[in-house]
Write a protein that binds this DNA or RNA. Structure first.
Lengths: 202, 202
DNA sequence: CACTAAAACGGAGGCGCCTCCGTTTATTAG
DNA sequence: CTAATAAACGGAGGCGCCTCCGTTTTAGTG
């Protein structure tokens, strides 16, 4: 049987990218994230190329349309958020890790509020993107919830999908000015409920 | 009481437009219709201005966005279609007038098939546009149906909304290649049904 | 290390978008 | 008819999009 090539860090499905190509690709995605956050989803692609220190041609070779670029940025951000679950789990007691992660989840959604319309369009158009990312998010959440249930810092009669369901309200909530505060309160409330009746309760 | 200004031909809601302005506005709408039909809804606005023999600035003054221009074109086309109802009613027996008008309706929808997606977006965004135009269409249809019922060339137990309902299938039908043929058959079928049992039937 | 083919780079150039403002024209008052 | 003024015109200019292709870099190979 053939030896599988090592799994590259990002998007290494078919061909191993040449080193400079991989470097530029990563750099573009990173810069694009910053520029989109700063100027919105209609930001100038030429500015992104400029700030990334590459030619506009390079940008277009890697990302033929604006949507490709947005997709890549979105995937990376979700991945970063989910990867943080593992780190938090190591540094904190499992209930605290869960709480902190949910806080970050809220913060992340907050940054996307303004772009919601365009992003929704993209998520509807590109169903793979939706299933990939939502799958990744629930996986991260499951990891945290199961750990906390296992060591008794939260109650045992809930699972990840219950928590995800509770967070769903955040995602679809209306776009009021106190959205963030209310969302954070929701997380606190949820954590109180989860801790109540836990095995290690004192 | 103040003397009302005479109703101008097009879009004379608030201010009477200066003569040259009205001329350019009409010309732009006309040319835009042709260019959109030729190159699709993303056609170059500069080409439209060029062909209309006006500067690009003039185009933008009259139609601040592409959507404004598309809306105007669409309104004019619907108006032209509906105005044809009156003329047909004069030149033909009332059942023939109705039939011919429905044929034109099919032809008109046919030209819009390609643009359907963008147009639907616009119609959803701009609900006034939708209600105005659909109201105008059903008014034109009512005129024809009532005349034909009145002189007995079609049966008396139907009204305009029945016919409109029957035509609805055309609008929402899938986008197959034989769409046009099937639609014409539908119109013929419908006319047969309408003539059957009419007072003047022989 | 040298060489080569393939891969990647990058920016010039052509086009379209849109704004801004100096020039022209229609209209109204005298 | 003339003058005055408000309205309309139009295109230059600045920017962004995207393609195309000559130049550079990388990753093998001897």
């Amino acid at each position: 049987m053939a030896v599988e090539p090592p799994i590259e860090q990002k998007a290494a499905e078919a061909k191993p990218l040449r080193a400079d190509a991989q470097r530029n690709r990563d750099r573009l995605a990173e810069v694009a994230g910053a520029v989109f956050a700063e100027h919105g989803i209609d930001a100038s692609l030429e500015e992104i190329a400029r700030r990334a220190g590459v030619g506009i041609g390079t940008l277009y070779r890697h990302f033929p349309t604006r949507e490709h670029l947005v997709e890549m940025v979105y995937r990376r951000e979700v991945e970063a958020l989910c990867a943080a679950a593992g780190e938090l789990a190591q540094k904190h007691p499992s209930d605290v890790a869960l709480e902190e992660w949910m806080r970050r989840f809220v913060d992340y959604i907050a940054t996307k509020r303004g772009l919601a319309t365009s992003l929704r369009v993209l998520l509807n158009t590109n169903s793979t993107l939706f299933s990939d990312t939502s799958g990744r998010v629930s996986q991260a959440l499951r990891q945290l919830v199961e750990a906390a249930v296992a060591d008794g810092t939260i109650r045992g009669d809930v699972d990840a999908s219950d928590v995800l369901h509770a967070l769903g309200g955040i995602y679809s909530a209306p776009d009021t000015k106190d959205w963030r505060d209310r969302s954070r309160r929701l997380v606190s409330l949820l954590m109180d409920g989860l801790r109540f009746g836990a095995a290690k309760a004192r």
